[in-house]
Design a binder for these strands. Structure first.
Lengths: 209, 209
DNA sequence: CGGCTATCTTTACACCGTTAAGATACGCTA
DNA sequence: TAGCGTATCTTAACGGTGTAAAGATAGCCG
């Protein structure tokens, strides 16, 4: 790690992020509180302000952490799958849904509205969260491009296809987490099965015939 | 209207819901507050507790109101479209996305996690919000069934197809609202265009060939 | 060794959700 | 019509939150 700064606490910044992740699993998104994170890190409730400008800034940091693991999971799914590009892309989509159902609170936090375009005035730079989110999206785009290269789907601008695929798995993830799609308890396995079916239907639509 | 109760205020319950809808447009979901709603209705901050058990209960009522309009919009799209069942279903999906981009704050509130399964102990009845949400979903299922009847898509259990279609438009709506999919300002028109494209791709996958 | 500065604490404020107790006025019944 | 019960609303209070300001502490660099 490059960041090896040490202060009074040792490394309060990371400790607060870790505390936030713990709270997230225990009490959900709304349970994440600056004061509770500070409490768990053993510091006063105002200490976090020396490491995060805002509560939103702490949430942001947790989200970036989440997106890093998310992108890793997608990349791993792509790389560890054998078969043609379309099959590998399908595995990536399934991994997308599995991540959401496996860590629903984190996934929900990652997709909070407040994290998008936090700086309304300066609409130039995307912000760290949007960058991290874009990196995940790029994995899907790359998958689509590979499918095109393999002659599995039509050539041309890959973005429309990628957006369609992204929307499908994102919708599956969101609706699956809320239990709207899955009758029984929304487990990872149920989500994977559902995603396999849905992405299969979409794959039929993408495929060149 | 059946509910014509009148009390001191006249009809405080509805006034609070209306105030909540106003706040929603002005300040977003997090701006909706019991105290602010009471303020706008001209009553004390404790008055709402005689009409809503909770803040969550007010949010719930606003969500139900939203789902009623949502279901109407979907139904209207289905009925007012000419063409075969698949084309009408596509129009319904486009209306789904258009509603979200037209009233993003309301759509976000309607899909809050807290509204799903609020009674964890008694997992028997679905609750009013889930019922309203299910009614909207049913419109998509009915559309799929019509497609099957017309021989446009494969027969059998319509639910897998409906879930796929639902997930796609829901994902488009969520990602579109957050500006992740649409480069320019996420307008209703941009969303409709995007939804037309994406649902077209899926339609190819659903269609019998 | 001494001062600078980042780090942390203490204190304070406004706002929120929620509850309990008291005031008010509507509507039903006698 | 008089009176009373009760739904409706107000006032006051509690604990929790985010955030800012001011003071204390301790590490680091000259």
């Amino acid at each position: 790690m490059a960041n090896d700064d040490r202060y009074h606490h040792g490394n309060l910044r990371q400790a607060l992020i870790d505390a936030g992740l713990d709270i997230l699993e225990e009490r959900g998104v709304d349970g994440v509180t600056l004061r509770e994170a500070a409490r768990r890190a053993g510091v006063s409730h105002a200490a976090p302000y020396h490491h995060f400008s805002d509560k939103a800034n702490l949430i942001e940091s947790i989200a970036v952490h989440g997106f890093e693991g998310f992108a890793r999971a997608l990349q791993r799914a792509w790389e560890s799958t054998s078969g043609n590009a379309l099959e590998r892309l399908q595995s990536t989509g399934i991994a997308y849904v599995a991540f959401a159902l496996g860590r629903p609170a984190l996934f929900r936090l990652m997709n909070r509205q407040e994290l998008r375009t936090p700086r309304l005035a300066s609409d130039n730079e995307p912000g760290p969260v949007e960058q991290a989110a874009h990196a995940s999206y790029q994995i899907l785009v790359d998958g689509i491009i590979e499918c095109q290269a393999a002659g599995l789907i039509a050539r041309g601008d890959p973005n429309p296809y990628a957006l369609t695929a992204w929307s499908l798995v994102h919708g599956l993830a969101v609706l699956g987490m809320d239990g709207l799609i899955i009758d029984r308890e929304p487990t990872v396995e149920a989500g994977e099965q559902l995603a396999r079916m849905a992405t299969g239907v979409l794959g039929q639509g993408l495929m060149v015939r």
